[in-house]
Design a protein around this nucleic acid. Structure first.
Length: 536
DNA sequence: CTCGCAATAT
DNA sequence: CATATTGCGA
């Protein structure tokens, strides 16, 4: 009934309207909690005995999103039964008693949290977090029906795309933001305005890990439901950990930038999450770093007090198109001659990426520049395979665009970057071979100020031996076509400075261009170049 | 320590 | 087999 996708398509102010089952034997306490919850615009149905509550959730399991259940010394059994029956329902235990083993048992049986009475408003207000958490963490098993809409609406609210395994850390981070401002709980922002309820958010990162460990290590006597289910999440545990470690410092301010990168761990287990289905890197920047599953060389079984594995393992970088795009952009911005790993790393501004990764990638990049093109060459031209001569290709023919191509139309949408495809033509003016009939997109590397006819500034490649050879290889028609296109774009850009640059790409910085030019003895910049400078 | 290359691993 | 990682000399 409740939760059709339509009902909740928006769920405008999300936590409001969340349906809470309250089970508290103490009627006055129940009334008090109910009142508070209702002030927070939760919908509360309270019960005073377990049987009523049990029948309620068993007859209409989708009626509630979350349950709050009181535990006393006398009603253990009923509550445990409830937990058992409501294991799809995020359940928060509340109690006056301070019994560690009881708490432990509840948690082990699947309770999300165990709170001591009296309940603070903060904790009540934040119960929705458990709902969302569970909605995103129904490990393995399907998300319970009552929680599906939650997940959907949260996803839509955050403008997230949910891949097979979306990084929940990302979600959670945004949710933390949510709890801060979206909750518009002005009346409660006394002193600690940042995180109203310390216990709840903390539990996500720290406590739950402990719980998992406890479940498996100590309490596996008879109670391993949630634990078993959540076992498959050790990856996300590590992801969270990595994220907080790696990104913690710089991400604090950056987390809202549109081009935030996400680190996600790849799991090669059966539920094949990322790798196979990562074809949609157009929309959101994303790259994967997966830890090698075998921690052989390093003795990294250490655990910190929280039980979090501090495995600073070697991370394998998956150079997704997006990541690679950044890389190329950085290289270009630096100029091929100055593209050293450390600087590239800086420019890429990607947390978690090491200089080593970049160096390796750079190596590959250069290798391709030197080998792929020459190879094509060798096959069709000379059959000289002399490896010593690989740097010299004075007269390489370059494919021109097929005749029918004329650049009268606007740039096509940003292309999917093939891993190395456009590397074949990283220098301006050099056209990548495009299959006939292919949409003639222009690589982002080709920017007006890089190749103007006659000046042959031609960007940064002059100091690069390989690129030098490329620039020789211009075919007239290439130049003409490129100029035509470029001219058009430049004119448009100049005449409409308020518009974003084509393809939404960031051009090289003015400084880098100018410094490069001055290095080459060009101190005066043509006026139209200046013009393009203005729009930056 | 960084860079770039070559060997090695996945 | 392509590509990422590791190792090593400059």
């Amino acid at each position: 009934m409740v939760c059709t996708a339509n009902d909740l398509h928006g769920w405008k102010d999300f936590p409001k309207g969340l349906r809470v089952l309250l089970l508290d034997g103490d009627t006055s306490s129940a009334a008090e909690i109910k009142t508070k919850l209702e002030e927070m615009e939760y919908v509360v149905v309270s019960y005073c005995n377990e049987n009523d509550a049990l029948s309620a959730i068993s007859s209409k399991p989708e009626t509630f999103h979350v349950a709050i259940v009181e535990v006393t010394t006398s009603n253990h059994e009923g509550n445990f039964k409830f937990l058992e029956a409501a294991k799809d329902l995020p359940t928060i235990m509340i109690s006056n008693i301070h019994c560690l083993s009881t708490m432990m048992k509840c948690i082990a049986l699947g309770a999300m949290e165990f709170l001591q009475k009296p309940l603070s408003d903060d904790k009540l207000r934040n119960i929705w977090q458990h709902v969302v958490h569970k909605a995103f963490n129904a490990g393995g098993s399907a998300v319970p029906n009552s929680l599906k809409p939650i997940k959907e609406s949260v996803v839509s609210m955050l403008h997230l795309e949910l891949e097979n395994s979306e990084n929940e850390n990302q979600v959670e981070k945004k949710l933390e933001i949510l709890s801060g401002d979206d909750d518009n709980n002005h009346e409660l922002l006394e002193g600690s305005d940042k995180y109203p309820a310390p216990s709840t958010p903390q539990q996500k990162h720290g406590m739950r890990l402990v719980d998992d460990g406890d479940c498996q290590d100590q309490l596996n006597s008879s109670l391993e439901k949630e634990c078993g289910e959540q076992d498959g999440e050790s990856k996300s545990v590590e992801t969270t950990c990595i994220n907080s470690l790696v990104e913690g410092t710089s991400q604090v301010e950056n987390s809202q930038l549109p081009d935030r990168e996400a680190i996600k761990e790849e799991e090669n287990s059966a539920d094949g999450c990322g790798a196979a289905s990562n074809i949609d890197h157009d929309t959101h920047d994303q790259y994967n770093i997966s830890s090698s599953e075998k921690n052989k060389s390093k003795p990294c079984g250490l655990s910190n007090p929280c039980g979090i594995k501090v495995s600073r393992k070697k991370l394998k970088v998956d150079w997704t198109p997006e990541l690679h795009r950044k890389f190329v952009q950085a290289v270009e911005q630096l100029g091929v001659n100055q593209a050293i790993p450390s600087r590239i790393l800086e420019l890429m501004k990607v947390e978690g990426l090491t200089r080593h990764n970049v160096a390796s990638h750079l190596q590959k990049y250069r290798m391709h520049k030197r080998h792929i093109l020459p190879k094509e060459e060798d096959r069709s031209w000379s059959h000289s395979k002399d490896p010593m001569r690989k740097n010299y290709y004075p007269q390489r023919p370059v494919m021109a665009f097929p005749p029918p191509y004329h650049s009268n139309h606007i740039m096509p949408v940003a292309p999917i970057y093939p891993p190395w495809g456009h590397m074949a033509c990283p220098s301006p003016g050099v056209q990548m071979w495009v299959p006939p009939g292919y949409p003639p997109w222009r690589p982002p590397e080709i920017w007006p100020w890089k190749s103007y006819p006659g000046q042959h500034i031609s960007g940064f490649e002059n100091a690069d031996p390989y690129d030098k050879s490329y620039s020789i290889a211009f075919s007239p028609i290439d130049l003409q076509l490129a100029d035509e296109e470029i001219d058009k774009v430049v004119k448009e850009a100049i005449s409409k400075p308020w518009l974003p640059l084509p393809l939404g790409l960031k051009p090289p910085s003015t400084e880098s261009v100018l410094s490069e030019l001055s290095k080459q003895g060009i101190s005066t910049v043509p006026s139209h170049i200046n013009g393009s400078k203005v729009i930056q």
